[in-house]
Design a protein around this nucleic acid. Structure first.
Length: 257
DNA sequence: ATGGTAGCCTTGCTA
């Protein structure tokens, strides 16, 4: 089962890019972030015609996550538990063919030193609590999405240039390690040790042309999923096409149970 | 050198 995640930076503006990629990559599950629309405005017809079941947690203008799957999506959880007052649409979880999959859009947190960064850290702690429950379930689970954390300096093009960015702050990296150290596996790093491989390149400044990016999109697997992990990679091609998102898809392959 | 682009609607805000 191929499971992919892609921050598309507007589902409507990116529809033709999304359709082109699902036609060629054929993921069984696709997690989308920053769909930037209400549930009713998500381009569901076009994706249903490609054979996908669809769940969305939409929001006007900002955020918004979706879960697409060839098989039916069961036991859907909308929103990250732990704060009933949180109105931002950043977390959607469901079960596809026995695998629990979460589509995650972790808060960016810029600028550092503001309530936005505090919100990021608090959200990360809630995610860690949720991950603890998923691990306790002893099921195959995949936490997929834009985590807005570059885990190490190997995951950024220039640590000095990025030093003030919320995605490299020591406290965010520490909380990311707390999450990983619960017992999750970074699927990409199982197969690729080389530094300076990215999933995101800033729109400003032609960063993709010079390959100045960040590795901030991840697939984190519970042991029961990691035991089935057969492959994982970043697909850079969509970032180089016309009208691209600033992120590109990353995917993993799980062998049949 | 502290800019620049993209997407949304709030023609400023978020990233």
């Amino acid at each position: 089962m191929k499971i992919a995640t892609w921050n598309v930076n507007s589902a409507k503006a990116r529809l033709s890019n999304i359709l082109a990629w699902v036609d060629e990559a054929k993921p069984e599950v696709l997690c989308l972030q920053e769909i930037k629309c209400l549930d009713a405005d998500f381009p569901a017809l076009e994706l249903r015609s490609r054979g996908y079941h669809i769940e969305t947690l939409g929001q006007r203008s900002y955020n918004g996550v979706a879960l697409l799957a060839r098989a039916p999506i069961g036991d859907v959880l909308r929103g990250l538990p732990g704060d009933d007052g949180d109105t931002q649409a950043r977390y959607l979880e469901g079960t596809v063919a026995g695998v629990r999959v979460a589509s995650i859009y972790l808060p960016n947190g810029n600028p550092v030193g503001t309530d936005k960064y505090d919100y990021k850290l608090a959200w990360m702690r809630r995610l860690t609590a949720r991950a603890r429950d998923l691990l306790d379930s002893e099921r195959a689970c995949v936490l997929a999405g834009d985590f807005n954390v570059a885990p190490t300096d190997d995951d950024v093009y220039d640590p000095l240039a990025c030093a003030k960015d919320a995605v490299v702050q020591p406290s965010a990296r520490a909380e990311f390690r707390v999450l990983l150290n619960l017992g999750l596996v970074d699927a990409y790093r199982v197969f690729h040790a080389e530094p300076h491989k990215y999933t995101y390149w800033d729109h400003y400044g032609r960063k993709f042309l010079s390959d100045e990016g960040l590795r901030i999109d991840h697939l984190l697997l519970t042991p029961q999923a990691a035991d089935r992990l057969a492959a994982a990679d970043i697909d850079r091609a969509p970032r180089g096409r016309d009208n691209p998102s600033d992120h590109t898809p990353i995917w993993c392959e799980l062998a049949d149970a």
